[in-house]
Simulated scan of single mutants.
Amino acid sequence: MKNKKAWGVIITLGLLVLSKFKFVLVILKVLKLQTLISMAIYLWMYALIYGWKFAVAFVYLIFIHEMGHTYAAKRLKLPVSPAIFIPFVGAAIAMKEMPKSAKDEAYLAYMGPVFGLLAFLPAFPLYFYSEDPFWALVIFLGGLLNLFNLIPITPLDGGRIAAGISTKLWAVGLIILLGYSIYNFSILGFIITIIGAMEWYRIYQQQKNLAKDKKEVSSYITTNNLLREHSERASVSNFTYYAGSFKKDILNEQLRETFNILNKVEELETTEEQDREIIDEFLLRFDEQVHKIKNEFERKAAYYKTDNKTKLKLFVIYMGLVVFLAASTYFGNSIIMESEEMKRIME
């Protein structure tokens, strides 16, 4: 058992070092076979340590789990990358675009454990028919894998589900995961705990700053309206001076840079008609940027707002999954403990 853990740690550290070299990812991308190649490497490495039976079962369970996320992403019309298998870590798909709300994010997260549950359900009748403890191992692995993923802390599925219920649940997830990591001295657990804590702090700061952001966006909208009104009645030189007085109050760098368009009026020898075109270009771009900032603020403000009915539904489904997966893990483990062969594999 100690030798297996030692090899696991050595190989994991080696992979973390290799992951820093971007050419590995580039090669996989060019081949267009990143899922198949990473799956083969994953399978081979687990087979070396635990044997082919265990490796095939584990890869199968993880693959179906990730296909659940892929299915949900397609339903939500969200572009995602192919699944990549990372030995001694798991597998993941990368979102190329964020969901529109925490409700959609929860749905995306749910489909992983749901598909994961469906993946090992056939193992129940197969065990009762054959009494082969290998099927109990599949049940145990499927239950544990998906149950671990339901710990309510990002980047685990449970954290994304909790986002649709209450971000306060992330505190519970942090305590659970930290306790698990200390008890099992899990390096991966500690890494996820740190990532989860950082993400929770980021969201906390984002939500805390919403009132300030709202005031800032409101000032940009007011400025935009005042500039448009003034442009209709003022001369070119007067408008340029008037617009310049607002620049110092603008915090957004992109909006501040837009004011540089007006420098053309002063620096170049242009006609009044050309000056007017420059001002119109400035107003158009300023208006577009203000609306973009406004839309982004509204998206952030509304992202974690979920109605009580949806929260209750998400919570009930979450608890149902936790209970069933916990029962499955217990059932599989109780049978494994009675089988010397399975106990040797798990050790």
Rank of each mutant, 00 (worst) to 15 (best):
L210A: 09
Y110S: 13
F297C: 01
V59F: 00
G173S: 10
L118G: 05
I176V: 03
P79V: 03
N3Q: 14
A136Y: 01
F115V: 00
D275S: 09
D249K: 13
V9D: 14
Y46V: 04
I139S: 01
P133D: 05
I175V: 13
I195C: 06
F246R: 06
V138R: 00
A234L: 12
G196W: 00
V59Y: 00
L145H: 02
V172E: 04
L25M: 12
I175P: 05
W44S: 08
R285A: 00
F124W: 02
S339T: 04
Y241S: 11
L268Q: 04
F120K: 02
F124L: 05
R299W: 13
V24M: 12
R202Q: 02
E296M: 11
I192Y: 01
G116E: 00
D157M: 10
L61N: 08
L36C: 06
E229M: 12
L268T: 09
K247P: 10
W135I: 05
M111N: 12
F190W: 02
A243F: 05
V56I: 03
T154C: 15
L13T: 12
S235V: 10
E229Q: 11
T167M: 02
S81D: 00
L178T: 10
A94I: 09
Y303Q: 02
V17P: 00
L156C: 00
E296V: 08
F297K: 11
P82K: 07
V138H: 00
V89Y: 11
E97A: 07
F140G: 02
I161D: 07
M98P: 13
H69F: 15
Q207W: 07
R202F: 01
V265P: 04
L121K: 06
I84Q: 07
A57K: 09
L178F: 02
V56M: 00
L312I: 08
T12G: 04
L48H: 05
G68E: 08
L314T: 11
G51A: 08
F21V: 06
E296C: 11
G164T: 04
G189H: 06
T258G: 12
I62Q: 05
L147F: 06
E298D: 11
N263C: 08
L283S: 07
L144T: 14
A6H: 05
